[in-house]
């Protein structure tokens, strides 16, 4: 592997920044801004490795438009009943796996810690993101984001995005 080109470094930087912002908006409860990280026509899914590894497509969360992402957040705010909790994402380095024009495919490990009302923090979900990111514009956006999680036993519920 030779030294990366300037363009490769820029792509990698853009993808890592986007993932960091993704985590930040969720963890800081700025969920209304979160759908804007995605293209209008996009795909977001949170799927267990147990299903993914068997080539089964059943996901815990599956959205195929930005509107559906907004609906998830509106539902969380207005409709759903769940225990009070917050997330903290810990991200590993983002690696660019392939590039096609201005679209990059990346992979990033993550851990989500959950803190509930009782004050305890636990490892809630860990896995990897496989993302397709459009890095052409000033602000890069997800074309697709798939969180493939190892922790297939979900603690009580999943209402916030991973």
């Amino acid at each position: 592997m030779g030294l990366p080109t300037l363009e490769q470094m820029q792509f990698q930087h853009a993808a890592a920044q986007l993932n960091a912002l993704h985590a930040e908006l969720i963890d800081d409860d700025r969920l209304e801004e979160w759908p804007n990280l995605f293209e209008e026509k996009c795909q977001y899914s949170v799927i267990s490795a147990e299903n993914h590894n068997r080539s089964l497509n059943l996901a815990a969360v599956f959205c195929d438009s930005r509107g559906m992402l907004v609906d998830r957040i509106v539902s969380l705010r207005r409709a759903n009943i769940f225990p009070a909790h917050s997330y903290r994402h810990i991200l590993g380095p983002t690696r660019v796996k392939s590039t096609s024009g201005q679209i990059v495919t990346t992979q990033t490990n993550y851990v989500v810690l959950m803190t509930r009302n009782d004050g305890q923090t636990s490892i809630y979900n860990s896995g990897k993101y496989v993302d397709q990111i459009d890095v052409s514009g000033a602000g890069s956006r997800f074309l697709s984001k798939t969180a493939i999680f190892d922790t297939h036993l979900i603690d009580t519920m999943m209402v916030r995005p991973i």
Binding site: I47, N57, A60, T156
Partner: peptide, 11 residues
């Protein structure tokens, strides 16, 4: 045909 599983731990 099975589409997949989901597992939920409830306290």
């Amino acid at each position: 045909t099975v589409l997949g599983d989901q597992r939920q731990r409830i306290r």
